[in-house]
Design a protein around this nucleic acid. Sequence first.
DNA 1: ATAAACTTTCATATATTTTTGAAAGTTTAA
DNA 2: TTAAACTTTCAAAAATATATGAAAGTTTAT
Lengths: 167, 167
Amino acid sequence: MEFTEAKNKFVQTWGALGSQWGINKTMAQIHALLMVSNEPLSMEDIMEELQISRGNASMNIRALIDWGIVYKEFKHGERREFFTAEKDLDELAIKIAKERSKREIKPALKVLKEVSADVDTKTTEGKYFAEQTDKLYEFVLKTDNIIEKATEYKDNWLTKLLMKMMK
Amino acid sequence: MEFTEAKNKFVQTWGALGSQWGINKTMAQIHALLMVSNEPLSMEDIMEELQISRGNASMNIRALIDWGIVYKEFKHGERREFFTAEKDLDELAIKIAKERSKREIKPALKVLKEVSADVDTKTTEGKYFAEQTDKLYEFVLKTDNIIEKATEYKDNWLTKLLMKMMK
DNA sequence: ATAAACTTTCATATATTTTTGAAAGTTTAA
DNA sequence: TTAAACTTTCAAAAATATATGAAAGTTTAT
């Protein structure tokens, strides 16, 4: 397979998969493109490669930078900005996990705690509701903690051992 | 807070969070509703509670059943079907993990393997591409395996120990 | 076998999300 | 300071995903 063909296939598929993960298609495609790029790309390069508008490119590059998985790069003697992806996959996984925890798990915890604590438990229904939401709260919290710990200690011996055991 | 108010808040928020996770709003809401419901609900109940159409209710209940996290229930002497949610949270997490692995990770692995193996590596670009996609493949595979093992052994002593260590 | 009671399907309508592109904003070299 | 070279913003347009509801399908009691 030609390089261009393979790259295209990869970028397109990654975009489609991104949609399922609640990440927009273009954002996933830009990230895919930068992941397999030898060298930094300019915004023009990205627009050209993906056939997207300037605004779209700008917004999604910015989002990737906010996630901390794409970096701006300055080339000597060049006015334009260039972009590269975080290529250390452990680092990438950690940043994605943290961002999703912040955006999706923390708000869930907040609501669960609120409704569980505030609901009127005089009725049977209310009691059951409080019980269920409390259990959910504890479970989600535990899960979030495990993710946090796993990302925190990714390099230490313990985790390496666990990884080995689990493989 | 009144039970009805708390329930509403929970169901609405869960729906909104579901969207971010790539799960449609109604599906998340139905699941939320069943999670905090004392007893099985009929399709009518669900339609009424969420103010949605019959078709919408039917499609999303079916999707939840396909995921294996909602069950049909038959009440003695009742013609209608009733529905309940899987309320064992470990079981719920496992089913969700398996379903997402099947739908989202496996296809990613497939593409990564394909493009990594098939790309023409005569050029520098091609070489780099093959290298990067291969690394990604290995990483995603490893992650998927960890999830698989973690769900498989959820009840045994080793996992319990790990959970404790990680808490 | 029939009809009542229910569920599913799917073409169309609605709602939501994403993309565009022109205008506004910013930066830098001279 | 200025103007060229670039980036960002945002209202409107396009694309995508979701919801509706009437018709078709299924099941069950008689």
